[in-house]
């Protein structure tokens, strides 16, 4: 894998460059020692430049703050507690980054991130994100439709599914030293789900490049599915004929299905999915304790767009 070459040879240089960036960031605040900088600040992400089109169908619900969205993360490769990923974020080096594309397609190969991104115009889309743990956020992602990317590789008629994998490198992603899930993290979509116009390949949020804890430099966002389907820090895209194995499904097949569409009528074995707690910082201090849960919507409120994908599917069995 390309990542292995990087960790043995090029990483020291990247680490060096990353540290210089951190030092530069620290230098902005005179007298501030490195330890007083929050990791998220040390990793200060660059604003995305160029024209970012506003997607017309964005939700106008109250947005989760950048602070909340980037300090409360499920990214087990950087630690299992919600606050771990931001603390361990600087261990992950995202420059250079290579994505390997293969399987049932005509134009696979290894691509530098720049070549993956070059042809695509960026767009801001504000989506609801519903976690399988019954909380939700509203996040302005920056990215482009996954379909536009996948079409470039010319998948053939045997490409029924798309399989994605996260970087595997236990040094950069220390959570991978522990067998909490099958590494590398693997996810998959049916080809029509992957090609659906709502399915986004994201490179940023809140107008900035993705911070590492949010899945830099390249992550999926599938807004009608539970959050864990939106795989982070992607290094591999594979067109396959058979339904691919996915990490959470391997870990607990009764709890996490391949589809994992947001569905208030299908309970998780241990908790109801009928309601969710919106984390948007709308109320502060003690009043945040009394914010009511809201009803979870079918397909996370995107039923009009995606329900037609599943007309032939028993969603209770195929949860």
């Amino acid at each position: 894998m390309a990542s292995k070459i990087r960790s043995s040879e090029i990483t020291p240089e990247s680490v060096f460059r990353e540290r210089r960036l951190i030092l530069q960031a620290a230098g902005l605040g005179l007298g501030a020692s490195a330890s007083t900088l929050l990791p998220s600040e040390a990793m200060a992400k660059t604003p995305l430049t160029g024209d970012i089109a506003k997607w017309p169908d964005s939700t106008d619900e109250m947005q989760t703050s950048y602070e909340q969205a980037t300090t409360y993360n499920n990214f087990y490769e950087l630690g299992t507690a919600k606050g771990d990923p931001v603390k361990n974020a600087d261990k992950l080096i995202t420059e250079p980054w290579t994505v390997e594309v293969g399987g049932q397609c005509e134009k696979g190969g290894k691509f530098a991130l720049e070549d993956i991104l070059k042809p695509h115009a960026l767009e801001e889309r504000i989506y609801r994100l519903r976690c399988v743990e019954a909380w939700s956020m509203v996040i302005p992602w920056v990215g482009f439709p996954l379909a536009d990317l996948l079409k470039r590789f010319e998948p053939n008629s045997r490409a029924k599914y798309v399989e994605f994998k996260t970087l595997y490198d236990p040094v950069q992603l220390p959570g991978q030293k522990f067998p909490v899930l099958q590494w590398p993290y693997s996810e998959g979509l049916r080809i029509d789900e992957a090609m659906h116009p709502l399915t986004l390949m994201a490179v940023g949020l809140y107008g900035k490049t993705l911070p590492n804890q949010s899945g830099a430099p390249l992550r999926l966002v599938v807004p009608w599915k539970y959050g864990f389907k939106s795989i982070k820090s992607i290094v591999s895209i594979n067109f396959v004929e058979l339904q691919p194995q996915t990490s959470w499904n391997i870990s607990a097949p009764r709890e996490y299905g391949f589809y994992s569409n947001v569905n208030p009528r299908v309970s998780h074995p241990r908790w109801s999915q009928a309601k969710e707690r919106r984390l948007d910082g709308g109320s502060k201090g003690f009043s945040a304790l009394f914010s009511d849960k809201r009803k979870t919507e079918m397909f996370n409120g995107y039923a009009d767009e995606v329900a037609s994908l599943y007309t032939d599917l028993d969603l209770k069995k195929n949860f």
Binding site: Y72, W135, R277, L279, K284, G285, F286, L289
Partner: peptide, 11 residues
């Protein structure tokens, strides 16, 4: 909680 330290305080 008073200082809004928890993103999901109830949890």
């Amino acid at each position: 909680v008073a200082n809004s330290q928890y993103v999901d305080p109830v949890e």
